Simulated assay, not measured.
Amino acid sequence: MTDTSVDAQSSTAAEGASTAYQGALLERFRAHIAGQDLWVFGYASLLWRPEFEAQEQYITRVWGWHRALKMWSRLNRGSPECPGLVFALLPGGSCQGVVYRVDRQQADEVLVRLWAREMPMDVYTPCWLPCQTPEGTVKALAFTLPRTSPSFTGHLPAETYRHIFQNASGRFGTTLDYARQTYESLLAHGIEDRALAAVLRHAN
């Protein structure tokens, strides 16, 4: 057997294991909401493109996580030749966003669609985060990113942001449009993100 064949078999095995793990993880999340409403925490594109109907939504804040434009995107907002960026929830600090309630009758369908949207590349780490609402504290689905992930950019200098804002584009558009849409949506919800405003100044 050639080395290429061994590599191909190893790659196929790894992909199969990842797919099995993701399937099992999704089933655990589906079991968690069985017969219940689904709450979802939106902090970036879910603010302006949720793609599901929510029965209620509230401005809220999660603690222990913050929004950051520090996740590589080589398909949606960039390319392998010129990687773009997308937002992630990173450990530390706090993050204002919107928590949505999906009725229990649609909860499972929406969860599966959200999973297909956010988890196709097996990058985010989904989890349940506590969010305050007028009804009390709820556990909301959120997509986070560990700093150990290869998709985490680490610190990016101003010139890197400028280059990405000027050049990175993928199948869903440019990194700059994505970042600006998120910032404008945050403002429309009455949320000020000074860190994001500072990053966007590199586009000028």
Rank of each mutant, 00 (worst) to 15 (best):
S45T: 11
L26P: 05
Q132C: 12
Y21R: 15
T19Q: 12
G23F: 08
R180K: 05
V123Q: 01
V199S: 10
L114N: 13
T2H: 10
R113T: 10
A17E: 15
G23N: 15
L186K: 12
G23R: 10
V86I: 15
L196G: 15
R194F: 15
R101G: 06
N204F: 12
T174Q: 09
P130W: 09
V138W: 04
A13D: 14
A142Y: 02
H155S: 10
C127E: 12
H202N: 14
W65T: 08
T12M: 13
R171M: 09
S185I: 08
M71V: 05
A14V: 03
Y43S: 05
R101P: 07
E159P: 03
S5N: 08
V199N: 06
A44R: 06
T133I: 08
K70D: 09
W65E: 10
Q166Y: 02
E53H: 15
C127Y: 00
G35Y: 11
R113F: 02
A44F: 06
R201K: 14
Q22C: 03
T125K: 02
T19K: 14
Q36M: 07
R147H: 03
A188Y: 04
A203R: 07
L156R: 07
Q55E: 15
P50G: 12
E15Q: 12
Y58L: 08
L111Y: 03
Y21G: 01
V40Q: 04
V62D: 04
L26D: 03
M1T: 12
